[in-house]
Design a protein around this nucleic acid. Structure first.
Lengths: 213, 213
DNA sequence: CTCAACCCTCGACCAGCGGTTGAGGTCCCA
DNA sequence: TGGGACCTCAACCGCTGGTCGAGGGTTGAG
Protein backbone atom coordinates (compact mmCIF):
# COMPACT_ATOMS: atom_id res chain seq x y z
CA UNK A 1 0.00 0.00 0.00
CA UNK A 2 2.96 2.27 0.56
CA UNK A 3 3.98 1.65 -3.05
CA UNK A 4 0.46 2.38 -4.07
CA UNK A 5 0.52 5.82 -2.58
CA UNK A 6 4.05 6.46 -3.67
CA UNK A 7 2.91 6.17 -7.23
CA UNK A 8 0.85 9.25 -6.63
CA UNK A 9 2.79 11.13 -4.02
CA UNK A 10 6.51 11.01 -4.41
CA UNK A 11 7.55 11.84 -0.90
CA UNK A 12 5.39 9.64 1.22
CA UNK A 13 7.30 7.36 3.57
CA UNK A 14 6.32 4.85 6.21
CA UNK A 15 7.49 7.16 8.89
CA UNK A 16 5.33 9.91 7.50
CA UNK A 17 2.30 7.70 7.57
CA UNK A 18 3.05 6.61 11.07
CA UNK A 19 3.36 10.26 11.97
CA UNK A 20 0.01 11.04 10.39
CA UNK A 21 -1.51 8.25 12.39
CA UNK A 22 0.03 9.62 15.56
CA UNK A 23 -1.65 12.92 14.74
CA UNK A 24 -4.97 11.18 14.47
CA UNK A 25 -5.50 11.72 10.76
CA UNK A 26 -5.90 8.03 9.99
CA UNK A 27 -6.60 5.09 12.21
CA UNK A 28 -5.87 1.95 10.28
CA UNK A 29 -6.92 -1.38 11.69
CA UNK A 30 -4.39 -3.76 13.21
CA UNK A 31 -3.65 -7.43 12.75
CA UNK A 32 -3.50 -9.69 15.76
CA UNK A 33 0.22 -9.13 15.99
CA UNK A 34 -0.01 -5.38 15.82
CA UNK A 35 0.76 -4.75 12.17
CA UNK A 36 -1.18 -1.93 10.51
CA UNK A 37 -3.79 -3.04 8.08
CA UNK A 38 -4.97 -0.35 5.67
CA UNK A 39 -8.44 -0.62 4.26
CA UNK A 40 -9.32 1.01 0.96
CA UNK A 41 -11.06 3.74 2.92
CA UNK A 42 -7.89 4.37 4.89
CA UNK A 43 -5.96 4.72 1.69
CA UNK A 44 -8.53 7.17 0.35
CA UNK A 45 -8.23 9.14 3.49
CA UNK A 46 -4.48 9.30 3.17
CA UNK A 47 -4.82 10.30 -0.43
CA UNK A 48 -7.02 13.16 0.66
CA UNK A 49 -4.55 14.24 3.31
CA UNK A 50 -1.59 14.12 0.99
CA UNK A 51 -3.43 15.92 -1.79
CA UNK A 52 -4.57 18.64 0.55
CA UNK A 53 -1.01 19.11 1.75
CA UNK A 54 0.53 19.13 -1.66
CA UNK A 55 -2.05 21.05 -3.63
CA UNK A 56 -3.57 23.34 -1.06
CA UNK A 57 -0.71 23.66 1.40
CA UNK A 58 -3.09 23.11 4.24
CA UNK A 59 -1.67 22.54 7.70
CA UNK A 60 -2.48 19.18 9.22
CA UNK A 61 -4.63 20.76 11.88
CA UNK A 62 -6.93 22.14 9.22
CA UNK A 63 -6.94 18.94 7.21
CA UNK A 64 -7.95 17.12 10.31
CA UNK A 65 -10.87 19.45 10.81
CA UNK A 66 -11.93 18.91 7.24
CA UNK A 67 -11.81 15.17 7.68
CA UNK A 68 -13.84 15.53 10.82
CA UNK A 69 -16.40 17.57 8.93
CA UNK A 70 -16.52 15.01 6.16
CA UNK A 71 -17.02 12.27 8.68
CA UNK A 72 -19.94 14.10 10.12
CA UNK A 73 -21.48 14.41 6.70
CA UNK A 74 -20.49 17.97 5.97
CA UNK A 75 -18.11 19.22 3.38
CA UNK A 76 -15.19 21.36 4.38
CA UNK A 77 -15.66 25.04 3.64
CA UNK A 78 -13.09 25.88 1.03
CA UNK A 79 -12.08 29.49 1.39
CA UNK A 80 -11.96 31.09 -2.00
CA UNK A 81 -8.90 32.98 -3.13
CA UNK A 82 -8.60 36.41 -1.58
CA UNK A 83 -9.58 39.44 -3.55
CA UNK A 84 -6.72 40.55 -5.70
CA UNK A 85 -5.13 43.81 -4.69
CA UNK A 86 -5.32 46.98 -6.75
CA UNK A 87 -9.04 46.59 -6.97
CA UNK A 88 -9.88 49.44 -4.72
CA UNK A 89 -13.41 48.94 -3.43
CA UNK A 90 -12.16 46.85 -0.56
CA UNK A 91 -14.65 47.98 1.99
CA UNK A 92 -17.17 45.15 2.26
CA UNK A 93 -14.75 42.81 3.85
CA UNK A 94 -14.23 40.49 6.71
CA UNK A 95 -15.73 41.33 10.00
CA UNK A 96 -13.26 43.07 12.22
CA UNK A 97 -10.88 40.77 13.95
CA UNK A 98 -11.69 40.22 17.57
CA UNK A 99 -8.70 41.98 18.92
CA UNK A 100 -9.38 43.83 22.06
CA UNK A 101 -5.94 43.52 23.49
CA UNK A 102 -4.11 46.58 24.54
CA UNK A 103 -3.30 48.21 21.25
CA UNK A 104 0.02 49.96 21.10
CA UNK A 105 -0.09 53.65 20.59
CA UNK A 106 -3.41 54.75 19.30
CA UNK A 107 -3.87 56.12 15.88
CA UNK A 108 -4.50 59.83 16.02
CA UNK A 109 -6.18 61.21 12.98
CA UNK A 110 -7.44 64.64 12.25
CA UNK A 111 -10.97 64.94 11.08
CA UNK A 112 -9.80 65.32 7.53
CA UNK A 113 -7.52 62.28 7.72
CA UNK A 114 -10.38 60.25 9.08
CA UNK A 115 -12.63 61.40 6.27
CA UNK A 116 -10.20 60.33 3.62
CA UNK A 117 -9.18 57.08 5.29
CA UNK A 118 -12.80 56.04 5.57
CA UNK A 119 -13.83 57.59 2.28
CA UNK A 120 -16.88 59.32 3.65
CA UNK A 121 -18.37 62.73 3.04
CA UNK A 122 -18.03 65.49 5.56
CA UNK A 123 -21.78 65.46 5.81
CA UNK A 124 -22.04 61.80 6.75
CA UNK A 125 -19.24 62.22 9.23
CA UNK A 126 -21.06 65.16 10.78
CA UNK A 127 -24.18 63.09 11.19
CA UNK A 128 -22.26 60.24 12.69
CA UNK A 129 -20.82 62.57 15.24
CA UNK A 130 -24.10 64.20 16.08
CA UNK A 131 -25.56 60.80 16.79
CA UNK A 132 -22.62 59.89 18.94
CA UNK A 133 -21.39 57.06 16.76
CA UNK A 134 -18.05 58.60 16.03
CA UNK A 135 -16.51 60.61 18.78
CA UNK A 136 -13.34 62.62 18.84
CA UNK A 137 -10.98 62.41 21.76
CA UNK A 138 -9.56 65.84 22.12
CA UNK A 139 -9.92 66.57 18.45
CA UNK A 140 -8.37 63.40 17.20
CA UNK A 141 -9.93 60.18 16.00
CA UNK A 142 -8.73 56.64 16.35
CA UNK A 143 -8.75 53.52 14.20
CA UNK A 144 -12.15 52.43 15.39
CA UNK A 145 -13.57 55.61 13.99
CA UNK A 146 -12.37 54.57 10.54
CA UNK A 147 -14.12 51.25 10.80
CA UNK A 148 -17.29 52.82 12.11
CA UNK A 149 -17.36 55.43 9.39
CA UNK A 150 -16.68 52.92 6.62
CA UNK A 151 -19.36 50.57 7.80
CA UNK A 152 -21.82 53.40 8.22
CA UNK A 153 -21.12 54.42 4.66
CA UNK A 154 -21.80 50.91 3.46
CA UNK A 155 -24.97 50.72 5.47
CA UNK A 156 -26.09 54.00 3.98
CA UNK A 157 -26.02 52.15 0.70
CA UNK A 158 -28.75 49.95 2.11
CA UNK A 159 -30.80 52.92 3.16
CA UNK A 160 -29.67 52.83 6.77
CA UNK A 161 -28.73 56.29 7.91
CA UNK A 162 -26.91 57.36 11.03
CA UNK A 163 -30.12 58.00 12.90
CA UNK A 164 -31.09 54.37 12.41
CA UNK A 165 -27.84 53.38 14.00
CA UNK A 166 -28.31 55.04 17.35
CA UNK A 167 -29.51 51.80 18.83
CA UNK A 168 -26.11 50.31 18.11
CA UNK A 169 -24.53 53.02 20.11
CA UNK A 170 -26.69 52.45 23.11
CA UNK A 171 -26.26 48.70 22.85
CA UNK A 172 -22.50 49.15 22.78
CA UNK A 173 -22.65 51.51 25.74
CA UNK A 174 -24.64 49.03 27.74
CA UNK A 175 -22.24 46.28 26.82
CA UNK A 176 -19.26 48.28 27.92
CA UNK A 177 -21.14 49.24 31.07
CA UNK A 178 -21.60 45.61 31.90
CA UNK A 179 -17.95 44.89 31.29
CA UNK A 180 -16.94 47.73 33.56
CA UNK A 181 -19.20 46.44 36.27
CA UNK A 182 -17.13 43.31 36.28
CA UNK A 183 -13.64 44.59 35.76
CA UNK A 184 -13.94 48.06 37.14
CA UNK A 185 -13.58 51.30 35.24
CA UNK A 186 -9.88 50.96 34.57
CA UNK A 187 -8.60 48.97 31.69
CA UNK A 188 -7.11 45.69 32.78
CA UNK A 189 -6.02 42.48 31.25
CA UNK A 190 -9.54 41.18 31.69
CA UNK A 191 -11.24 44.05 29.97
CA UNK A 192 -10.12 42.97 26.55
CA UNK A 193 -10.88 39.33 27.13
CA UNK A 194 -14.31 40.10 28.36
CA UNK A 195 -15.00 42.39 25.44
CA UNK A 196 -13.92 39.72 23.01
CA UNK A 197 -16.28 37.28 24.69
CA UNK A 198 -19.27 39.57 24.72
CA UNK A 199 -18.75 40.55 21.12
CA UNK A 200 -18.57 36.90 20.18
CA UNK A 201 -21.74 36.28 22.05
CA UNK A 202 -23.40 39.11 20.23
CA UNK A 203 -22.22 37.84 16.88
CA UNK A 204 -23.44 34.33 17.49
CA UNK A 205 -26.76 35.56 18.75
CA UNK A 206 -27.32 37.70 15.71
CA UNK A 207 -26.42 34.87 13.44
CA UNK A 208 -28.65 32.45 15.24
CA UNK A 209 -31.58 34.80 14.91
CA UNK A 210 -31.18 35.59 11.27
CA UNK A 211 -33.79 33.99 9.03
CA UNK A 212 -32.67 30.54 8.04
CA UNK A 213 -31.34 30.34 4.51
CA UNK B 1 -1.18 52.42 8.37
CA UNK B 2 -0.24 49.69 10.80
CA UNK B 3 -3.35 50.54 12.80
CA UNK B 4 -5.31 50.50 9.61
CA UNK B 5 -4.35 46.93 8.88
CA UNK B 6 -4.76 45.96 12.48
CA UNK B 7 -8.41 46.85 12.23
CA UNK B 8 -8.70 43.97 9.81
CA UNK B 9 -5.99 41.57 10.92
CA UNK B 10 -5.56 41.24 14.61
CA UNK B 11 -2.04 39.94 14.72
CA UNK B 12 -0.13 42.12 12.34
CA UNK B 13 2.81 43.86 13.90
CA UNK B 14 5.46 46.18 12.62
CA UNK B 15 8.07 43.48 12.85
CA UNK B 16 5.90 41.18 10.79
CA UNK B 17 5.60 43.74 8.08
CA UNK B 18 9.31 44.32 8.07
CA UNK B 19 9.76 40.60 7.82
CA UNK B 20 7.39 40.44 4.87
CA UNK B 21 9.37 43.16 3.22
CA UNK B 22 12.59 41.25 3.81
CA UNK B 23 10.99 38.32 2.06
CA UNK B 24 10.22 40.48 -0.90
CA UNK B 25 6.46 40.44 -0.59
CA UNK B 26 6.11 44.17 -0.44
CA UNK B 27 8.51 46.91 -1.37
CA UNK B 28 7.23 50.11 0.11
CA UNK B 29 8.82 53.35 -0.96
CA UNK B 30 11.17 55.19 1.32
CA UNK B 31 11.43 58.76 2.41
CA UNK B 32 14.73 60.56 1.98
CA UNK B 33 15.68 59.55 5.48
CA UNK B 34 14.89 55.90 5.03
CA UNK B 35 11.48 55.64 6.61
CA UNK B 36 9.03 53.29 4.92
CA UNK B 37 6.25 55.01 3.06
CA UNK B 38 3.30 52.77 2.25
CA UNK B 39 1.18 53.67 -0.71
CA UNK B 40 -2.44 52.55 -0.92
CA UNK B 41 -1.28 49.86 -3.34
CA UNK B 42 1.26 48.60 -0.81
CA UNK B 43 -1.46 48.37 1.79
CA UNK B 44 -3.68 46.44 -0.61
CA UNK B 45 -0.83 44.10 -1.28
CA UNK B 46 -0.34 43.50 2.41
CA UNK B 47 -4.03 42.97 2.83
CA UNK B 48 -3.85 40.31 0.17
CA UNK B 49 -0.90 38.62 1.82
CA UNK B 50 -2.50 38.62 5.24
CA UNK B 51 -5.82 37.39 3.93
CA UNK B 52 -4.15 34.58 2.01
CA UNK B 53 -2.28 33.55 5.12
CA UNK B 54 -5.24 33.71 7.40
CA UNK B 55 -7.98 32.35 5.18
CA UNK B 56 -6.10 30.00 2.91
CA UNK B 57 -3.11 29.06 5.06
CA UNK B 58 -0.83 29.63 2.14
CA UNK B 59 2.89 29.67 2.77
CA UNK B 60 4.62 32.93 1.97
CA UNK B 61 6.51 31.37 -0.90
CA UNK B 62 3.25 30.59 -2.65
CA UNK B 63 1.72 33.92 -1.87
CA UNK B 64 4.74 35.53 -3.39
CA UNK B 65 4.24 33.56 -6.57
CA UNK B 66 0.62 34.61 -6.68
CA UNK B 67 1.57 38.22 -6.29
CA UNK B 68 4.08 37.81 -9.05
CA UNK B 69 1.39 36.34 -11.26
CA UNK B 70 -0.95 39.16 -10.45
CA UNK B 71 1.73 41.69 -11.24
CA UNK B 72 2.21 40.11 -14.61
CA UNK B 73 -1.48 40.41 -15.24
CA UNK B 74 -2.42 36.81 -14.60
CA UNK B 75 -4.67 35.56 -11.92
CA UNK B 76 -3.30 33.12 -9.39
CA UNK B 77 -4.40 29.55 -9.92
CA UNK B 78 -6.52 28.61 -6.98
CA UNK B 79 -6.41 24.89 -6.43
CA UNK B 80 -9.86 23.64 -5.62
CA UNK B 81 -10.45 21.46 -2.61
CA UNK B 82 -9.39 17.87 -3.07
CA UNK B 83 -11.98 15.24 -3.73
CA UNK B 84 -13.48 14.00 -0.53
CA UNK B 85 -12.68 10.41 0.30
CA UNK B 86 -15.29 7.69 0.18
CA UNK B 87 -17.77 10.29 -1.04
CA UNK B 88 -20.01 10.63 1.92
CA UNK B 89 -23.25 12.64 1.63
CA UNK B 90 -21.85 15.96 0.46
CA UNK B 91 -23.52 18.81 2.19
CA UNK B 92 -22.33 22.37 2.14
CA UNK B 93 -20.27 23.44 5.07
CA UNK B 94 -20.71 24.67 8.52
CA UNK B 95 -20.33 28.40 8.85
CA UNK B 96 -16.99 29.26 10.28
CA UNK B 97 -16.46 32.01 12.78
CA UNK B 98 -17.88 35.27 11.51
CA UNK B 99 -19.36 34.00 8.33
CA UNK B 100 -22.79 35.24 7.55
CA UNK B 101 -22.88 33.86 4.08
CA UNK B 102 -25.60 31.49 3.08
CA UNK B 103 -24.88 28.43 5.13
CA UNK B 104 -25.94 25.23 3.55
CA UNK B 105 -27.27 22.45 5.67
CA UNK B 106 -27.11 23.30 9.29
CA UNK B 107 -25.47 21.28 11.92
CA UNK B 108 -28.12 19.42 13.89
CA UNK B 109 -27.16 18.46 17.38
CA UNK B 110 -29.14 16.85 20.10
CA UNK B 111 -29.19 18.55 23.44
CA UNK B 112 -26.66 16.11 24.76
CA UNK B 113 -24.35 16.58 21.80
CA UNK B 114 -24.55 20.32 22.26
CA UNK B 115 -23.73 19.98 25.92
CA UNK B 116 -20.65 17.99 25.28
CA UNK B 117 -19.53 20.01 22.28
CA UNK B 118 -19.73 23.20 24.29
CA UNK B 119 -18.58 21.60 27.50
CA UNK B 120 -21.30 23.07 29.63
CA UNK B 121 -23.40 21.67 32.43
CA UNK B 122 -27.00 20.68 31.86
CA UNK B 123 -27.89 23.30 34.39
CA UNK B 124 -26.20 26.15 32.58
CA UNK B 125 -27.72 25.02 29.33
CA UNK B 126 -31.15 24.99 30.92
CA UNK B 127 -30.69 28.54 32.13
CA UNK B 128 -29.51 29.66 28.75
CA UNK B 129 -32.61 28.25 27.20
CA UNK B 130 -34.95 29.72 29.75
CA UNK B 131 -33.47 33.13 29.03
CA UNK B 132 -33.86 32.62 25.35
CA UNK B 133 -30.17 32.72 24.57
CA UNK B 134 -29.99 29.24 23.18
CA UNK B 135 -33.02 28.02 21.31
CA UNK B 136 -33.77 24.67 19.80
CA UNK B 137 -35.27 24.40 16.38
CA UNK B 138 -37.52 21.45 16.60
CA UNK B 139 -35.40 19.78 19.23
CA UNK B 140 -32.09 20.23 17.51
CA UNK B 141 -29.41 22.83 17.97
CA UNK B 142 -27.08 24.40 15.47
CA UNK B 143 -23.49 25.55 15.46
CA UNK B 144 -24.31 28.98 16.81
CA UNK B 145 -25.68 27.33 19.90
CA UNK B 146 -22.26 25.84 20.58
CA UNK B 147 -20.61 29.21 20.36
CA UNK B 148 -23.22 30.83 22.54
CA UNK B 149 -22.98 28.14 25.16
CA UNK B 150 -19.20 28.16 25.21
CA UNK B 151 -19.00 31.91 25.55
CA UNK B 152 -21.66 31.91 28.22
CA UNK B 153 -19.62 29.37 30.13
CA UNK B 154 -16.54 31.57 29.88
CA UNK B 155 -18.50 34.58 30.97
CA UNK B 156 -19.83 32.67 33.93
CA UNK B 157 -16.22 32.48 35.00
CA UNK B 158 -16.31 36.25 35.30
CA UNK B 159 -19.45 36.14 37.35
CA UNK B 160 -21.78 36.90 34.48
CA UNK B 161 -24.71 34.55 34.56
CA UNK B 162 -27.31 33.91 31.91
CA UNK B 163 -29.72 36.38 33.43
CA UNK B 164 -27.14 39.11 32.93
CA UNK B 165 -26.99 38.24 29.30
CA UNK B 166 -30.62 38.84 28.41
CA UNK B 167 -29.77 42.27 27.15
CA UNK B 168 -27.61 40.66 24.51
CA UNK B 169 -30.55 38.69 23.31
CA UNK B 170 -32.75 41.71 22.95
CA UNK B 171 -29.98 43.68 21.28
CA UNK B 172 -29.50 40.88 18.79
CA UNK B 173 -33.22 40.68 18.17
CA UNK B 174 -33.41 44.36 17.48
CA UNK B 175 -30.44 44.14 15.17
CA UNK B 176 -31.99 41.34 13.21
CA UNK B 177 -35.27 43.23 13.14
CA UNK B 178 -33.54 46.17 11.57
CA UNK B 179 -31.91 43.96 8.99
CA UNK B 180 -35.22 42.40 8.13
CA UNK B 181 -36.77 45.79 7.71
CA UNK B 182 -34.29 46.42 4.96
CA UNK B 183 -34.09 43.08 3.25
CA UNK B 184 -37.45 41.62 4.06
CA UNK B 185 -38.17 38.61 6.20
CA UNK B 186 -36.76 36.09 3.79
CA UNK B 187 -33.09 35.34 3.66
CA UNK B 188 -31.41 36.84 0.66
CA UNK B 189 -27.94 37.51 -0.55
CA UNK B 190 -28.08 40.86 1.21
CA UNK B 191 -29.08 39.49 4.56
CA UNK B 192 -25.66 38.05 5.24
CA UNK B 193 -23.82 41.10 4.01
CA UNK B 194 -25.90 43.38 6.10
CA UNK B 195 -25.44 41.21 9.16
CA UNK B 196 -21.71 41.23 8.68
CA UNK B 197 -21.76 45.00 8.47
CA UNK B 198 -23.88 45.55 11.53
CA UNK B 199 -21.83 43.14 13.56
CA UNK B 200 -18.72 44.95 12.51
CA UNK B 201 -20.25 48.21 13.50
CA UNK B 202 -21.15 46.79 16.84
CA UNK B 203 -17.66 45.48 17.39
CA UNK B 204 -16.00 48.74 16.50
CA UNK B 205 -18.39 50.68 18.69
CA UNK B 206 -17.72 48.48 21.67
CA UNK B 207 -14.03 48.77 21.18
CA UNK B 208 -14.16 52.49 20.80
CA UNK B 209 -16.04 52.83 24.04
CA UNK B 210 -13.85 50.60 26.13
CA UNK B 211 -11.65 52.43 28.61
CA UNK B 212 -8.41 53.40 26.95
CA UNK B 213 -5.48 51.19 27.84
C1' DC C 1 15.19 -24.07 13.25
C1' DT C 2 17.29 -20.10 11.28
C1' DC C 3 17.85 -16.06 8.93
C1' DA C 4 16.60 -12.06 6.30
C1' DA C 5 13.43 -8.89 5.68
C1' DC C 6 9.79 -6.68 7.52
C1' DC C 7 7.02 -4.62 11.05
C1' DC C 8 6.35 -2.45 15.71
C1' DT C 9 7.09 1.54 19.53
C1' DC C 10 9.16 5.37 21.55
C1' DG C 11 12.07 9.02 22.39
C1' DA C 12 15.54 11.95 20.54
C1' DC C 13 16.59 14.84 17.10
C1' DC C 14 16.13 18.02 13.24
C1' DA C 15 15.25 21.63 9.45
C1' DG C 16 12.60 25.22 7.90
C1' DC C 17 9.06 28.64 8.46
C1' DG C 18 7.44 32.62 10.32
C1' DG C 19 8.29 35.56 12.87
C1' DT C 20 10.24 38.32 17.67
C1' DT C 21 13.69 40.56 20.35
C1' DG C 22 17.23 43.54 21.40
C1' DA C 23 21.26 46.30 20.68
C1' DG C 24 22.82 50.20 18.52
C1' DG C 25 21.76 54.02 15.92
C1' DT C 26 19.03 57.82 13.21
C1' DC C 27 15.15 61.08 12.56
C1' DC C 28 12.15 64.61 13.77
C1' DC C 29 9.09 67.81 16.02
C1' DA C 30 7.31 70.01 20.30
C1' DT D 1 17.10 69.08 23.06
C1' DG D 2 14.60 65.25 24.82
C1' DG D 3 11.95 61.49 23.89
C1' DG D 4 9.29 58.78 20.97
C1' DA D 5 9.04 56.57 16.53
C1' DC D 6 11.63 54.69 13.08
C1' DC D 7 15.76 52.28 11.05
C1' DT D 8 19.10 47.80 10.44
C1' DC D 9 20.97 43.56 11.47
C1' DA D 10 21.91 39.48 13.85
C1' DA D 11 20.52 36.34 17.20
C1' DC D 12 17.00 33.80 18.96
C1' DC D 13 12.59 31.22 19.33
C1' DG D 14 8.44 28.05 19.09
C1' DC D 15 5.88 25.28 16.25
C1' DT D 16 5.13 22.09 12.42
C1' DG D 17 6.20 18.19 10.12
C1' DG D 18 8.55 15.07 10.00
C1' DT D 19 13.33 11.54 10.27
C1' DC D 20 16.32 8.35 12.74
C1' DG D 21 17.78 4.70 15.46
C1' DA D 22 17.72 1.58 19.30
C1' DG D 23 15.46 -2.27 20.96
C1' DG D 24 12.42 -5.77 19.93
C1' DG D 25 8.57 -8.85 17.78
C1' DT D 26 6.61 -11.38 13.20
C1' DT D 27 6.73 -13.77 9.00
C1' DG D 28 7.96 -16.81 5.46
C1' DA D 29 11.50 -19.17 2.60
C1' DG D 30 14.94 -22.53 2.83
Amino acid sequence: MLRLLQAEFADVTISKIRFLESEGLVTPGRTASGYRKFSAADVDRLRYVLAAQRDQYLPLKVIKEHLGAIDRGLSPAAAGPPVAPSSLPQTPGQPVADDFGAAGTELRLTREELRSAAGVSAELLGELESHGLVVARGNHYDGDAIVIAKVAADLAGYGLEPRHLRAFRTAADREVGLIEQVTGPRRTEQTGELAALTVRLHTALVRSRLPRP
